[in-house]
Amino acid sequence: MAIRNVLRIGHPALRTRAAEIPDDWFGSQRLQQLIDDLFDTKLACSGAGLAAPQIDEPWRIFVVGMGHNPRYPDADPLPERALINPVIKSIGDELSSGWEGCLSVPDLRGEVERWQRIHLKWQDLEGAFHTEELLDFHSRVVQHENDHLDGVLFPDRLTSPLAFGFQDELQAHGRIP
């Protein structure tokens, strides 16, 4: 287990589409090590999620989960889990706006529209498939992390260029909690 360096916006690895985890990795120590490194790094940085490309690993895997998080004080807890080769689809057309941050875009926040409800399909460490419907903040976090697997960062999805700024400035002026 290790805390890895988180790449920042501008690094080309963050703009590359990640490859699927190969079948022969499931159940392996190699995959377990990657998952452990993702969780350790996410925890050390107080993240709600972290995708493999953010630690310079070109694979379609991310981790999510948090209890009380100082970066998201009003958010409900999320169960901790690793989502491998995820696929998401919207349920309906309803969108919601919310302020997002990113460990790869430090100290900045932006308002982004995301699907309110999604259908999620993913594999676990052993390769078993799972499906679930997600709502609200949990749906937002999964969509944000899934974007990383496609080389997309939250500033690419801003509702407006005016809905973007440094966290402390936005807080000082009452735009975010």
Rank of each mutant, 00 (worst) to 15 (best):
S46E: 05
L83F: 07
V63H: 10
K89R: 15
K42M: 15
Q33N: 11
D36L: 09
W25V: 05
L95E: 07
D37H: 10
G101E: 11
V112C: 06
A51H: 13
H68P: 00
M66C: 11
I88T: 13
G110T: 07
D23P: 08
F26Y: 14
R15A: 04
D107E: 12
R15M: 01
L95A: 03
R15H: 05
R8Y: 02
S28G: 08
W115V: 00
N69Q: 09
D36S: 10
R30Q: 15
E94I: 11
P70W: 14
A82N: 05
L43K: 14
G27F: 11
A52S: 04
G92Q: 14
H68L: 08
A48P: 00
R15Y: 12
D74N: 07
D93I: 05
D93R: 15
A13Y: 01
Q33L: 00
S97I: 05
D24Y: 03
D37G: 06
F39Q: 13
D107G: 09
I91L: 14
L95H: 12
R114H: 13
P22G: 05
A19P: 00
G27W: 05
L78G: 03
E113S: 10
L38E: 12
P86E: 13
D40C: 02
I35T: 13
L7D: 00
F62E: 03
S46N: 08
L43D: 09
I61L: 15
G49W: 09
T16R: 15
A51F: 10
A75K: 01
P106S: 10
P86Y: 13
L43M: 02
C45S: 10
V87F: 04
P58Y: 13
I91C: 02
I35D: 01
L78I: 12
A13S: 07
I9T: 01
D76S: 11
R81E: 06
P12A: 13
I35W: 08
L38R: 14
G110L: 14
G110A: 12
W59T: 00
L34W: 09
L103H: 10
D24G: 00
G65R: 06
G49R: 09
L34P: 04
S96Y: 13
R8A: 01
Q29M: 04
N85M: 11
P106M: 11
A52E: 02
S96I: 11
L83H: 04
Q32P: 00
G110M: 10
R109F: 12
A44I: 00
L78P: 02
D56I: 02
I61Y: 03
A18W: 13
V105T: 03
L95M: 15
L43C: 04
F62C: 01
